[in-house]
Amino acid sequence: MTRPFLKMNGLGNDFVVIETRSGPFDPTADEVRAIADRKTGVGCDQLIVIGKSEADADARVRFWNADGEEVSACGNGTRCVGWLLMQSTGKDEAVIDTQAGRLVATRAGERLVSVDMGPPRLDWQEIPLASAHDTAALDVALFHHADLMAPPGCVSMGNPHVVFFVPDVAQAPVELAGPAVETHPLFPEHVNVGFAQILERDRIRLRVWERGAGLTKACGTGACAALVAASRRDLVGRHATMVLDGGELFIEWREDGHVIMTGPAAVDFAGELP
């Protein structure tokens, strides 16, 4: 039996998307890694499975990183799923249940989708950290490099993030520090590692080393986390355009505490898994 899939991307952060009307799909870690492999599989940063919600949502969605680990949240992936669901229902809104909670996607233009990612989690236990620390300005040296000496901020957007503020992202040791910080013992569930350069009060250049996926062209929850971390330090206001390797996202941390992410969704091709 073969199973159809769609290859999608949000700013180059790419996904294999499977829906389960043709039967349940609960992949093993080995199967996820085989699908995600860019040489012998389809190739993707994350695998996404869309299922029927047991509640009153439009769908229940699960996410796996390329290393085979299931994760609670994926911002760019949620945007792609939201676009698919709105295309299939003809509505301008899609309600999506995830392990990180209920998310609502709305149309924001031609192939543009906004997702209410909910409020950030800022307490050290919610991120989680292994011990109590100030998450606005972490007092722990995670990686010894001149550009990474300013205290980073920690935020959970349904998945854990640490954000370093650097003078020049192009010179930051992303591929050296990323994997080292990802598995630092301070983060019991490992962590996504952001490197943010403040360009203006409403513009941030960002690169993200994603746990279980490595350096990606864009990270939606990483963009949300970076905006929140920067705003907490008064480096920016409550909204900013995030400039990622794959393009731009607009992030707003509303006064009601919710973080709204707006950006494109794209379908690359359709295929079948053996």
Rank of each mutant, 00 (worst) to 15 (best):
G75H: 11
G77R: 05
T78M: 12
T78E: 02
R79H: 11
R79K: 13
C80K: 02
V81R: 01
G82H: 07
W83I: 01
L84F: 04
L84M: 12
M86N: 08
Q87G: 07
S88I: 03
T89H: 07
T89G: 03
G90E: 12
G90S: 08
D92R: 11
A94H: 12
A94D: 14
A94E: 12
A94T: 12
A94F: 10
V95D: 09
I96E: 07
D97A: 10
D97T: 05
T98G: 02
Q99F: 06
R102N: 06
R102Q: 14
R102E: 10
L103D: 05
V104P: 03
V104I: 13
V104G: 00
T106A: 11
R107I: 06
R107Q: 13
A108S: 15
A108C: 09
G109H: 05
G109I: 07
E110R: 14
R111W: 06
L112N: 09
S114C: 11
S114W: 00
D116S: 08
D116L: 04
M117R: 02
M117V: 05
P119R: 14
P120D: 12
P120C: 11
R121P: 00
R121W: 08
L122Q: 07
W124G: 10
W124P: 09
Q125A: 13
I127K: 06
P128I: 11
L129Q: 10
L129M: 15
S131D: 13
H133N: 08
D134S: 08
D134A: 04
D134N: 14
T135L: 07
A136W: 00
A136V: 15
A137N: 04
A137K: 12
L138P: 08
L138A: 09
D139V: 07
D139W: 02
V140A: 03
V140D: 04
A141L: 14
A141F: 05
A141K: 11
L142D: 02
H144I: 10
H144T: 13
H145K: 10
H145G: 12
L148R: 00
M149T: 15
P152C: 09
P152F: 06
G153W: 08
C154W: 03
C154S: 10
V155L: 01
